[in-house]
């Protein structure tokens, strides 16, 4: 698994309005193009060949599955920020302020009182 690469997905998509729009409207297609042409980018000239998503990571990203992402140890700030960007406005209009954030918390309630999956990357690197 590559916790780093999942975080890289969340980081690069959240900071780009066009990628974010595509991630909201057609997540499967956006995840596929991200893996082809965005994820591997190290900078404008260089390509990195060392990372890839596992099937479980890909599915979690395609499904906007923030519970699975939390359980994989994706960084909480990246995950919260990107899904607020995708869902907050629609939830707000239907259910009022903070309704998305509270549903997000509710879906994770089985973690209350437990040690959360670590966001540290070195554990992910253990094979």
């Amino acid at each position: 698994m590559s916790k780093y690469y999942v975080n890289k997905f969340l980081f690069t998509v959240d900071r780009d309005p066009e990628l974010l729009r595509r991630y909201k409207e057609d997540p499967r297609s956006l995840v596929a193009s991200w893996e082809q042409s965005i994820g591997p980018r190290l900078n404008d000239a260089e390509i990195s060949t060392v990372n890839s998503l596992t099937d479980a990571e890909r599915e979690a990203l395609v499904n906007h599955d923030y519970v699975a992402l939390f359980e994989m140890g994706a960084h909480f700030f990246l995950s919260l920020t990107i899904f607020i960007a995708i869902y907050d406005e629609d939830y707000m209009a239907k259910l009022g302020p903070l309704s998305f954030q509270r549903e997000f918390a509710e879906k994770l309630k089985h973690w209350n009182g437990k040690d959360y999956p670590s966001i540290a990357l070195w554990q992910a690197a253990a094979r």
Partner: peptide, 9 residues
């Protein structure tokens, strides 16, 4: 708490 079960209480 951000992005976890205790957020936005």
């Amino acid at each position: 708490e951000l992005g976890g079960p205790r957020q936005f209480k």
